[in-house]
Amino acid sequence: MEISLLERIFLESIQRLRDERSDRSLYHVFQGKKSATSLQDAHFYDLESTFGTVLVSKQRFESVLTELAQKKWIERQETLRLTSEGARLVRQTDEVIIDQLGGELRGYTEMMWKRLSLLVQTVICLEAKQPFIPVQQETIVREWVKSVLPTISNRAVWLAQMYQEWVLLLERLSERDATLISHRLSGVQTGWSYPQLARMMKVDVETVQFEFIIAWRRCINDLSNTPLIQQIGADLHTPKMTQSAQTTWELLQQGLTVEDVAVRRRLKNSTMEDHLVEIAMYASTFPLDHFVVAAQQEEIRHIAQQLKTFALKRIKSAMQSDVSYFQIRLVLARSKWEGS
């Protein structure tokens, strides 16, 4: 049976959820909701790459799940799970789609496109003395372009180099990916809308949107040979943590104790725990031993592996020793770093 790109994204994601999370959890990860739970879901279940990149409406999200259930590829109960047929479909190809969406870069991919497409259009049209409608309307992008323009002293030289860099990037891609991206770009000629690209590629509009996202992610994967383009995103590092956890992390790095921070920031115990889990997920170093003794860490990891689960309740009830949910979360959060 024919399977669409979006359906594939759903199936692959649902498989990773291991029959342990609900449709709401998945929706929030797709939307990139910056809450402790969603961040933890994305991290534990290896869905970082989908975080905030599968931006479909709530309605569309529902309808995809309904269709998948009707085709008997998934089952919907408290949690989402693949049927054996669904699992077979996922296994069909070696290529994993969801890992190419770029969500782990937290908006970098998208912002790179916005900046680059507007800057290229602006410089080309200014040089050609051709009036244009800015392809990006967001103030933040337009302000950025405005701030960069004066630094380009010789537009013709800049354009020649920019053109060379685009050739370098597109050469590495498949014909299809390069065609998509080059036709979306605006300059002397205007880029194409998604419906127009879809018609050219003979797919539906939704599919072409995701194809474009993936193609663009591939395109800017390695910018080391294209310094001009690399420079455009040089200042873009969006922290993975929530703003609040980030603040806590900074204070801890300055040498404050957990208790100090909690008092100073008036954080509830549960909030403090959320912050620490976030830090454990994303920080390169974390004093795990300070919170969980080594033997218990080992036991938690062992059980999680044996039961193939991230469900805290199941792990806790299988434990010999007494640990808190917080401790389990910390160990699981850290296992991505220490396990590998």
Binding site: M162, L170, E175, G191
Partner: peptide
């Protein structure tokens, strides 16, 4: 629709 190389030239340079 043209191949990507041609398209890139059109975007950057064609008058």
């Amino acid at each position: 629709t043209v191949n990507w190389k041609k398209r890139l030239e059109q975007v950057f340079f064609s008058s």
